[in-house]
Design a protein around this nucleic acid. Structure first.
Length: 554
RNA sequence: GCGCCCGUAGCUCAGCGGAUAGAGCAGGGGACUUCUAAUCCCAAGGCCGCAGGUUCGAAUCCUGCCGGGCGCGCCA
């Protein structure tokens, strides 16, 4: 029995009690959940339903709890129900009902943990969106790991998801990039406010290989060649380094297309229709202060140029018109000032800024070696890049390390820690369980132990304390996945996997799975093999959500 | 000045209103003729920044303060 199923049982018991006592059934929630108590004395699962309902219906919590307990105690698979404290219900399952989960998990395979919790939602997820003026820096990499994991989580919970990389190929930073390339090609010093780093030389060489005539052109033409070719090369590089990192986007969106298709004009007229646009000092403004922004924003400057914000408006509108009802944008901490204007902009379009637009802010990332943050990159001068991180610790460790922490907290990634092959390296600890469970499977096959017919599986034999704890940890996975998706917090999956890994290691240490020597294969061996394989399934499913491999051997 | 984030064990961090606040590391003590000891076990370690409020119940929600990080543009 899964916690979700038990929660259903609790709820239907509540319905029965309410009916019997003539209480107001509209006070009952549509859904309830059971918790996994820390303290084993509090049972396998606990429900706080009586505490939540007592005030609504005017029945003392312990009295309500007693009625629920009596009803629940009759349910199949429930071994006992106790009332504790102010009105907690502490529920114990019988071993057969608990153990049956191992079979359900193995049979569900990659499907275990998936749900339809977010079915019907259509979510656009934009992340990284680094300017094509240099390699992806480490802040962008955090979003590559977290954003990609979030996309996987949202899909696993039934949402329709479109991942998206916004490619700023129209702004003045691109002109600065082109000027920097031209200067480098001519051997001139980097222009003030230009880009520097060894990668520029590589781009220059590649552009010159394609267009040997480039330096014979006049300034404007040469700069244009460097702009077009340089951006294309940079973009290819970004795209391929992200692909090597396991991240591919459904859509790579060009800012330039918004301009070419007249979408900024369209956005402006929509906003004008809504009555939030005004003109002053020759510029065109959006009255974002109407919706809580600290100042109004310019859409079109007095010289006739569009602002970057105007493109943001057009891009948002474009996403909405493509049928996404939730637009999620992941940004670095230095962009938090955008939240106010972006939310206000959504409101100016007539949208609900709480529901239609979510802006997630991620704090800074440092790569630390020998106790000091790394500031220098071989190719990119003062920024640490995606390739620096992968060179230092590898893709699996990098993705795991970046996805393991709440985006609200800054992280230091210690190179020495994340390459260690011990307990204190979380990704190793978790992957080790993947390898260990696979190894047990191989050894089992060698001694002739197989799970056998599912009908012959005897779940009631899994009654050891460590088996029970492992089963409870396995049972939590679907709830962890849906919570992580709803809260946009992939780190919950990583923390859960570490918890599960601990439960497996303790099981492994206490409960011998394979027969020793010439010992006969028993039903207990087979039952434990089901549990072993269920664990491997959940570890693999969980790591997959994070884009991290589940190795067969280590 | 204004805004966002953070403040939990010596350190790094979990903890979507529930019971006695949890992990890892560091430091102390144990378990290898191994199904991978790449692991496990035991002990120790806490005014959850401070003060109020809401609640049957607050590390969690609200307000104020203190401390730290980041930001503020007709830049992108």
């Amino acid at each position: 029995m899964t916690p979700a199923e038990l929660a259903e049982v609790v709820l239907s018991a509540a319905h029965a009690v309410f009916t019997e006592r003539g209480l107001d059934r509209s006070a009952l929630p549509e859904r309830t959940a059971v918790e996994r108590p820390r303290n084993p004395e509090h049972g396998d699962y606990a429900s706080t339903l009586a505490l939540q309902l007592s005030k609504k219906v005017g029945v003392p919590p312990r009295e309500l709890a007693a009625a629920l307990a009596e009803q629940l105690g009759r349910a199949a698979g429930v071994k006992s129900v106790e009332i504790a404290g102010p009105g907690f219900l502490n529920i114990r399952l019988d071993a057969a009902a608990a153990g049956q989960l191992a079979r359900s998990i193995v049979e569900a395979g990659p499907e275990y943990g998936r749900s339809d919790r977010l079915a019907g939602q259509s979510i656009n997820l934009e992340f990284v969106s680094a300017n094509p003026t240099g390699p992806v820096h480490i802040g962008g990499v955090r979003w590559a790991a977290v954003g990609d994991a979030l996309g996987r989580l949202l899909r696993a919970t039934g949402a329709r998801v479109g991942t998206e990389y916004y490619f700023n190929d129209a702004g003045s930073q691109i002109d600065r990039f082109a000027r920097s390339l031209l200067a480098a090609a001519r051997g001139e010093p980097t222009p003030e406010d230009g880009y520097a780093g060894a990668y520029l030389g590589e781009i220059v060489a590649a552009v010159q290989a394609r267009r040997p005539d480039v330096l014979t052109l006049d300034d404007a033409a040469a700069q244009e060649v460097f702009r077009v070719e340089g951006v294309a090369l940079m973009f290819d590089e970004i795209r391929s380094s992200l692909r090597d990192f396991g991240v591919e986007f459904d859509t790579y969106f060009n800012e330039k297309d918004l301009h070419d298709r007249g979408e900024l004009d369209l956005a402006l007229s929509r906003l004008r229709e809504q009555g939030h646009v005004f003109e002053t000092e020759g510029a065109t403004w959006l009255r974002t202060t109407e919706f809580g922004d600290d100042k109004d924003r310019v859409l079109r400057k007095s010289n006739g140029e569009w602002t970057y914000f105007a493109a943001d408006c057009a891009y948002y509108l474009d996403k909405r018109e493509r049928g996404f009802d939730r637009v999620v944008i992941m940004l670095g901490a230095d962009h938090h000032g955008y939240i106010g204007r972006m939310k206000a902009m959504a409101a100016c379009f007539g949208d609900d800024p709480e529901r239609n637009l979510e802006i997630l802010i991620g704090q800074l990332v440092n790569l630390v070696r020998d106790g000091a943050p790394m500031r220098m990159s071989k190719r990119a001068g003062t920024v640490v890049t995606l390739e620096d991180l992968v060179d230092a610790i590898g893709v699996d460790a990098a993705r795991y390390a970046l996805a393991r922490y709440s985006s609200d907290s800054p992280i230091d990634i210690d190179v020495e820690l994340w390459t260690r092959a011990t307990r204190d390296n979380p990704v190793y600890y978790v992957q080790y369980v993947a390898a260990r469970t696979a190894s047990v499977g191989r050894n089992a096959a060698e001694v002739g132990l197989t799970r056998g017919d599912a009908a012959a599986f005897r779940p009631e034999l899994l009654d050891h304390e460590k088996e029970n704890e492992l089963l409870k940890a396995l049972a939590e996975f679907p709830a962890v996945v849906s919570t992580a998706a709803e809260l946009r917090e992939p780190h919950r999956v990583a923390r859960y996997l570490e918890d599960l890994a601990g439960a497996y290691h303790r099981f492994y240490d206490n409960c011998r799975i394979l027969p020793r020597g010439d010992e006969e294969v028993t039903d207990l061996h087979r039952a434990r093999l089901w549990l072993n394989d269920a664990t491997r399934t959940v570890i693999a499913n969980g790591l997959n959500l994070l884009g991290v491999s589940a190795p067969e051997r280590m």
